[in-house]
Design a binder for these strands. Structure first.
Lengths: 120, 120
DNA sequence: GTGTTACTTAAGCCCTGACTTAACTATTGG
DNA sequence: CCAATAGTTAAGTCAGGGCTTAAGTAACAC
């Protein structure tokens, strides 16, 4: 598994945890401290920090220390590889459907050939 | 973690493994047997079968036994929760950007008030 | 300067994930 | 029937994930 930031592996893995998705949802509304993120999650600070670090490692989040508090903010642009992959999947699937449809039409035409002239 | 099929948890987790993504890419082109899927991955059959099972548990794939071979096919529609979540994230992010922009414009107008009358 | 706050590190625990080999079972082709 | 094929189950290894508590450290607030 490639664990460099911004890869599909790290991104999907970062998104696979509900706690981290909750954090991302929170951060989409604006920056927050680690405590802010931990509070609604009923979780100790070390655990929350670990998740933040993981999001940061994935490249989805950037953090900055201001005095004694660490502020995290979303880097939304980094979802790109994920959406790109999903789009590519959809494209492949649709290409296949198209091929299948042409095949089905050919079959139908072969079956109904010179029987009638359809216009549906 | 909710492990029922079709949930964000199971979907993202299923997608987090490169082996499984490769399988999905292959299946987007059409159905395949477990051996077909295992072959290019340099992996024993039990391991491949395990991945197929996991994709099936996530709801992304359906399988059917034909004689002694198990055929897997993609159920592309099941990506929906993932794309929906990503779209929602983007929407939240953009709503925030809009608010920020309005704020910035207000600041600019406050700063330049009665200095000039802009028309950009 | 002393206590509180906000993180940080370290250690450890338990469970799951991704494999492997070995030993079946169920088809199928000669 | 018999051997090869395709999958399946069982068992075990090994690494990592998600948490905890306990013990720091650094910045503030008085």
């Amino acid at each position: 598994m490639d664990l460099s930031p911004g890869t599909l592996d790290t991104l999907f893995q970062a998104l696979a945890d509900p706690t981290r998705r909750t954090m991302l949802e929170r951060l989409a509304k604006g920056p927050a401290s680690v405590s802010d993120l931990a509070a609604p999650l009923e979780m100790t600070l070390p655990a929350a920090l670990d998740h933040v670090r993981r999001l940061e490692a994935a490249g989805l989040v950037a953090t900055e220390k201001q005095g004694r508090v660490r502020i995290a903010r979303l880097v939304a642009a980094r979802y790109a590889p994920v959406t790109t992959w999903l789009d590519a999947q959809r494209a492949m699937w649709e290409a296949r459907l198209d091929r299948f449809e042409r095949f089905a039409v050919r079959q139908r035409d072969a079956n109904t050939e010179s029987k009638d002239t359809r216009d549906d």
